[in-house]
């Protein structure tokens, strides 16, 4: 039996969508700065990129606060349990209409591959992106006059690390957009992220209780 369950809370959805917009906008302006195409023009691209970067950092601060106060951070702890089963599902089961190997519940909304991927994003890619970005923004060489920031003598390593992380994020976004369609139905995941509600199967300890609490 399935039941309509409130899976994604309002801040979570706001965080997700603003983050999505910002990452896409940062990627678009960032790769214009990187070179290869011209849309806003270099000067404007830099200005927009910087503003979006500060917004993104602000959002991350709020998101971190939210994750810890709600305990949601535990959702992202990676687990090897069912990891290979999840991989097998994407490589085989999905073509045979097999059931998802893990049940989605409010307390376990991420499958093992999601946990691993998002954990990697949260502790590796995003921190690298943000810290290299902050160094990029604060980078000054040399330090003189009234301008006192970081005195780093080459931007090269910072810029290249920032670029590598950017390529990872863009690849992630592309694959992520595709995997949205692999829920119970093609659009169930997408709808859930808009409305917060998703049809989930009843289970012994999760959905029912929460539904009642609400």
């Amino acid at each position: 039996m399935t039941r309509k369950v409130y899976v994604y809370r309002s801040f979570e959805r706001f965080w997700h969508w603003l983050q999505a917009i910002l990452i896409i906008f940062l990627a678009f302006t960032g790769f214009e700065i990187h070179g290869g195409y011209s849309f806003f023009g270099f000067e404007e691209a830099v200005a927009y990129h910087n503003i979006a970067a500060y917004l993104f950092i602000t959002l991350i601060v709020f998101a971190i606060f939210w994750h810890f106060t709600t305990g949601e951070w535990k959702q992202y702890l990676p687990t090897y349990k069912n990891l290979t089963a999840q991989m097998r599902y994407y490589l085989w089961g999905i073509f045979n209409d097999a059931p998802h190997p893990t049940k989605k519940t409010v307390l376990r909304k991420l499958n093992p591959m999601q946990k691993l991927t998002y954990f990697g994003l949260k502790v590796l890619v995003i921190p690298i992106m943000v810290s290299s970005g902050i160094l990029y923004i604060l980078y000054r060489y040399p330090q003189r006059h009234e301008i006192r920031y970081l005195n780093i003598d080459s931007l090269e390593i910072i810029a290249i690390i920032h670029t590598i992380a950017a390529f990872f994020l863009v690849s992630f976004v592309i694959v992520h957009l595709y995997l949205i369609t692999t829920g119970e139905t093609l659009t169930s995941n997408l709808k859930a992220m808009f409305t917060g509600y998703e049809e989930l199967e009843d289970d012994d300890y999760g959905n029912k209780n929460l539904e009642e609490k609400k």
Binding site: V46, L155, T163
Partner: peptide, 14 residues
């Protein structure tokens, strides 16, 4: 002799 955004990039990374 320096890295300039918009002009320079790592060919391997790209």
């Amino acid at each position: 002799d320096f890295y300039m955004p918009g002009r320079d990039y790592s060919k391997v990374v790209d």
